[in-house]
């Protein structure tokens, strides 16, 4: 695929061919392409109006209270059918998504919304994971910082000899070629 095989290449030619990979502009070009694609993919279709898509998007956010663990989009229960009809009629009246969801929440309580609230006690379900993850990342960063400060433990000369000997033995076992300077890039 990319000609990375260490045994068959000589270091110099490879280095030249791969020099491109170390240039920042090559990577910037990639980022640019991805950026343009992402911008181009932004969906501009309106979120108002009557459409199957919109009805589906709304009904997956509503819980079918008559059934067990199903959304209004999935269920065929009479209540779910009635909800879907109501969504249709409200879409025709030009209501926004938030207004339609609020309509159901006002009548059936918070429970009917599958999205937990963004205020009050219920908001904790959004906040707690973020806090826990942030704390975890900070903790890990702290541990790394401490390790770096204490980076005292170094390999002793004895360790180095041991490792070098072992590597030499290994390569003798494995390589039919005489051990020459190997390409560091493997």
């Amino acid at each position: 695929m990319n000609g990375d095989d260490p045994a068959s290449r000589q270091g110099n030619g490879r280095r030249q061919r791969h020099a491109l990979r170390q240039h920042w502009w090559a990577w910037a070009a990639m980022a640019l392409v991805v950026g343009v694609v992402l911008v181009a993919s932004i969906d501009t279709s309106p979120s108002r109006g009557v459409s199957e898509q919109r009805r589906y998007a709304l009904s997956v956010q509503l819980k079918c209270l008559q059934c067990v663990g199903e959304s209004v989009a999935a269920s065929q229960a009479p209540l779910a059918v009635q909800f879907r009809e109501e969504i249709d009629s409200q879409m025709r009246q030009g209501r926004t998504d938030d207004e339609i969801l609020a309509f159901f929440a006002q009548r059936y309580g918070q429970e009917v919304l599958l999205t937990p609230p963004s205020s009050g006690l219920g908001a904790l379900v959004w906040v707690v994971p973020v806090v826990v993850v942030a704390a975890g990342v900070l903790g890990l960063a702290g541990v790394f910082a401490r390790w770096r400060r204490e980076a005292g433990a170094r390999a002793s000369e004895e360790d180095r000899t041991l490792v070098a000997g072992e590597l030499a033995r290994r390569h003798q076992d494995r390589d039919p070629e005489p051990a020459g300077p190997r390409d560091p890039d493997g």
Binding site: L79, Q82, Y108
Partner: peptide, 12 residues
């Protein structure tokens, strides 16, 4: 009567 049952929050 569908609208009325929605207004009252009838489930079952």
């Amino acid at each position: 009567t569908g609208a009325a049952s929605l207004d009252y929050g009838v489930v079952k």
